[in-house]
Simulated scan of single mutants.
Amino acid sequence: MSCERLTYAEERALRACERAGRKREEVLLLGASKGVSADRLRKFFQCGLRVFGENRVQEFLKKWEALKDLPIDWHFIGRLQSNKVKYIIDKVSLIHSLDRHSLLEELSKRAENMGKVQEVLIEVNVGGEETKGGVEPRNLKSFFEVCLKDKNIKVLGLMCIPPYREDLEEVRPYFATLRKLRDELEEEFGVRLPHLSMGMSHDFETAIEEGATIVRVGTLIFGSRV
Rank of each mutant, 00 (worst) to 15 (best):
I88Y: 02
T213M: 01
R179H: 12
A16Q: 02
L98P: 04
K149N: 12
E106H: 00
S2P: 00
G134W: 06
R216Q: 09
S224P: 12
V51R: 00
N83G: 03
E25K: 14
Q118N: 02
L30V: 09
F175Y: 12
R192T: 07
L193I: 02
L107E: 05
L103C: 15
K154Y: 06
K34R: 13
G128P: 13
E145C: 11
N152R: 05
V85H: 00
E65R: 11
R5Y: 05
T7Y: 13
E205N: 02
L193P: 08
L67H: 12
E25T: 15
C17M: 12
I208A: 14
R24P: 04
V117H: 09
T131I: 06
E184G: 09
E65P: 04
A13L: 15
F189G: 03
L94M: 07
A16V: 02
R15E: 15
T213I: 00
C160L: 09
N152V: 00
F143C: 08
V217W: 10
M1H: 05
K43W: 10
L148A: 11
L61S: 06
L178G: 05
K116C: 13
I72M: 05
K86Y: 08
S142G: 01
L148E: 13
L30H: 02
Q46C: 07
I72Y: 12
N113W: 02
E186K: 06
S33L: 02
G199F: 10
R42P: 09
L121Y: 05
V226M: 03
K149Y: 08
L158K: 01
L61M: 13
K154E: 14
F144P: 03
R216K: 10
L104V: 05
Q58C: 03
A20S: 04
V226L: 03
S33I: 05
H75I: 07
L181G: 01
G31R: 13
D167P: 00
K151W: 12
K180A: 14
F76P: 00
E10P: 04
E26Y: 04
V146S: 10
T219G: 04
K23C: 14
A13K: 15
Y87H: 15
V226N: 12
N152P: 02
G223M: 05
C47W: 07
V191Y: 11
I161H: 14
E184P: 03
A111N: 00
V27F: 07
F143V: 08
V215I: 02
I72T: 12
E59Q: 08
T206S: 13
K34H: 12
L140H: 11
F222S: 08
S93R: 12
I153H: 08
C17D: 08
L140E: 09
L67I: 07
I153K: 10
L49V: 14
K63F: 06
L121A: 09
C147T: 05
L6C: 07
E170A: 13
R100L: 09
Q46Y: 06
P137D: 02
E209L: 02
E123N: 05
E59K: 06
R138I: 13
C160S: 15
G128T: 12
I77A: 02
A32D: 01
L156R: 05
F189H: 06
K132Y: 07
S201M: 00
S33M: 03
L158Y: 03
L98E: 05
R182S: 11
L98G: 01
G78L: 05
N125E: 06
Y174P: 13
K84T: 00
G48F: 02
V117Y: 14
A32K: 01
Q81I: 09
C47Q: 09
V171W: 01
K63S: 01
E169G: 04
D203S: 07
